[in-house]
């Protein structure tokens, strides 16, 4: 999924709204302290705003975080074949016949020796 400006905006709005809810909650506590009232619970509008902005953030993050991986452990291996899996770069050997195609390669003289002996 491509990350669009729309989803970035949603995420920013969500965070902004969450911080706003937190700030309102702090304001509410300081209001209670000034009026020497007992704290029972947060006002319902702050609660709703907090929960709603949480969901908005979740929606935004889901689109921005990138593609999901398959839950099956073997999903990544599904399209691999033994031919690529068996290749181990740290154990490559280089004296194979492909060498002969290289313009820099000079044929070893051993063959000439054999011809001389014959």
């Amino acid at each position: 999924m491509p990350v669009s400006v729309f989803h970035r905006l949603i995420l920013t709005a969500g965070f902004f709204s969450l911080f706003h809810a937190a700030y309102s909650a702090a304001q509410h506590r300081s209001y209670l302290r000034l009026n020497e009232l007992e704290f029972t619970s947060l006002p319902i509008d702050i609660l709703i705003q907090g929960v709603a902005s949480l969901f908005v953030i979740m929606y935004g993050v889901l689109y921005i975080a990138g593609d999901f991986k398959e839950i099956k452990a073997s999903a990544e291996l599904e399209n691999k074949t033994w031919e690529t899996y068996k290749n181990i770069p740290s154990f490559y050997t280089f004296n194979h016949r492909g060498k002969a195609f290289s313009p820099q390669y000079i044929q070893p003289t051993s063959k000439l020796h054999i011809e001389e002996i014959e």
């Binding site: 770069p89 490559y92 280089f94 492909g98 060498k99 195609f101 820099q104 390669y105």
Partner: peptide, 11 residues
């Protein structure tokens, strides 16, 4: 580098 080694392309 590894590919060049494999193809014997020393430069």
């Amino acid at each position: 580098c590894l590919a060049a080694l494999d193809c014997y392309h020393i430069p």
